[in-house]
Amino acid sequence: MEKYLKGTEKREIFIKDEEDTNPDYGWKPEERPIEVYLKYVAINLDKPVGPSSHEIVAWLRRLLGIEKVAHAGTLEGC
């Protein structure tokens, strides 16, 4: 039995034109310098039972000193 109900989708990429990318600009996501890396991140959080998503976000904001923390979807009231 597959763990997830949604199966894996196969998608194809079509090449319209070929070109190189200049290594002087941008980075592969994993290779961004840490200060840049942290601008483009998410956490796949294993939320503990108890505190609400809102409380976790407020707590992370304080901890990390980052204003722009938000969550994608709460379980409360579901």
């Binding site: 996501p29 994993e30 961004r32 890396y37 942290l38 483009y40 991140v41 998410a42 956490i43 796949n44």
Partner: peptide
Amino acid sequence: SFIPVEYT
């Protein structure tokens, strides 16, 4: 712990 936004 922090993953690139591209993974989402």
